[in-house]
Design a binder for these strands. Structure first.
Lengths: 127, 127
DNA sequence: GCAAAAGTCAACCTATAGGTTGACAATATT
DNA sequence: AATATTGTCAACCTATAGGTTGACTTTTGC
């Protein structure tokens, strides 16, 4: 995941959103992390429960969880020595919508595509 | 982007799809690459045209383009010394659908969520 | 009270990403 | 033919990711 340096182009707000998008896509680019998300989609898991399917150390999983937590994809509920991890899909929504912006290209409708291009041309001047 | 090592869990086919997903998400995790995609969504661009908005070297952009090309997001049409880059959104579709699998969580319908959980429980046994 | 269990933190290793600069190859231009 | 333009390739640098091991903290069970 790369920090954004092309500050010339974006307003601070957009820049922040861009950075967030980068973080989310990056978090999702790891197969182990995606698998963790898959497990948490069924039900909350403890850290050791999340460890079980993977041939890595507890520390490695702990790091992945921390990474997912950092981008908001996991909420941690601590009860004594047990850390219960809950999935929070909200951040995915942003990535989903970004990709959705290009859905017009692959879902075929020429009308939609034209609309897209027009709206882009307009925004061009709004800056 | 990480290589998948938990081969224990996945069939070769699934493993390959997982690897592809990782590549795509990783490609999208870079803000410059996303911006390039944005430019190409408007119209095809040459390499130097793609360079123009960014405060980096031509080589850096060339690398990004190569990276996007490698995951299939860019097609290159070479005419003499000009490399015309075209956007190919198809690979995004896969990422989009993966995320869409979790849409039920954030779009609120409890019914859908229950269906999701049931279908997952079934697949559990199908392996 | 003591040992096991659940996790984190810190230090380390290795691979790779993204950036740079400096040649180079090939096509256009004049 | 000489030069400028377009772009790649190769070598290098630095930062960081993901993995490891080892020590440590806190809670829990006996």
């Amino acid at each position: 995941m790369t920090r954004l340096q092309a500050s010339h182009i974006f307003t601070p707000m957009v820049e922040r959103r861009e950075a967030k998008l980068s973080e989310i896509f990056y978090a999702l680019s790891d197969p182990t992390r995606r698998a963790i998300i898959g497990l948490l989609a069924e039900r909350p898991h403890t850290v050791t429960e999340l460890l079980e399917p993977f041939p890595v150390s507890l520390n490695a999983i702990s790091k992945h969880i921390k990474a997912l937590e950092k981008v908001g994809l996991i909420d941690r509920e601590i009860k004594g020595r047990i850390h219960m991890c809950h999935l929070n899909t909200a951040p995915m929504n942003e990535a989903y919508r970004w990709l959705g912006g290009y859905e017009k290209f692959w879902s075929g409708s020429l009308d939609k595509l034209e609309k897209l291009l027009n709206s882009r041309a307009k925004n061009r001047h709004g800056k």
